[in-house]
Amino acid sequence: MSRVRDMFISGGENVYPAEVESAILEHPAVAETAVVGVPDERWGEVGRAFVVRHLGAELTSEDLRDFLRPRLAKYKIPAHVDVVDQLPRTGSGKVQKSRLRSMPRTRKAF
């Protein structure tokens, strides 16, 4: 899947995950991230970020959202943030965003 096809529409606005991922990666606690669009009754789709933290780093969803506010438009800030140990990858190392989209939401999300 190409980067353009990863785009999702939130409240009538185009959101490109690569832009959101770049902003998230600027946070010093974040080692890796992937952003996907997930269905939302009000906005059509919203962002869901999967974040791998650096070993020993602390990060809450509010810390991340506060960090992103001056960097991204409000509609681009992920509505859901999940901390994961690693991102699912193909044999060639590409992140499997289709697997991320289908992952159930857990209360463990931060």
Rank of each mutant, 00 (worst) to 15 (best):
P104V: 14
E26L: 15
E21H: 04
S92E: 12
E32R: 11
K74T: 14
I77W: 14
A31G: 01
G12I: 04
A73F: 06
E58P: 00
S92D: 10
R5H: 10
W43S: 10
P17R: 13
F50A: 01
L59P: 12
M1E: 00
W43P: 10
S92L: 09
V36M: 05
D63I: 06
F110W: 06
V46N: 03
I24W: 04
R71H: 07
V4F: 05
V20D: 03
R107H: 03
L59V: 07
A23L: 10
A18D: 15
L25E: 14
R99F: 06
K97W: 01
R5L: 09
V81Y: 07
A34E: 09
V83P: 07
D66I: 03
R107Q: 01
G93W: 05
A29N: 09
R69Q: 09
E19I: 15
P104H: 15
V15F: 13
S92N: 10
A109D: 11
Q86G: 00
R69S: 06
T106F: 04
W43G: 06
A73L: 07
A79E: 08
K108H: 07
W43K: 09
P88A: 11
T33L: 05
I24M: 12
E62C: 03
E45K: 04
Q86C: 00
E58W: 01
R101M: 04
L72C: 01
L87W: 10
A49Q: 05
V84G: 12
D40P: 13
R42M: 15
R71V: 01
Y16Q: 14
K108Q: 08
L55D: 06
T90H: 05
D63N: 07
L100W: 07
R71Q: 14
R65M: 11
P78S: 01
K94Y: 07
E26W: 11
E62N: 08
A79G: 10
K97H: 08
F110Y: 07
E21V: 09
L68E: 03
R89W: 04
L59M: 13
D6A: 13
G12S: 12
A57L: 06
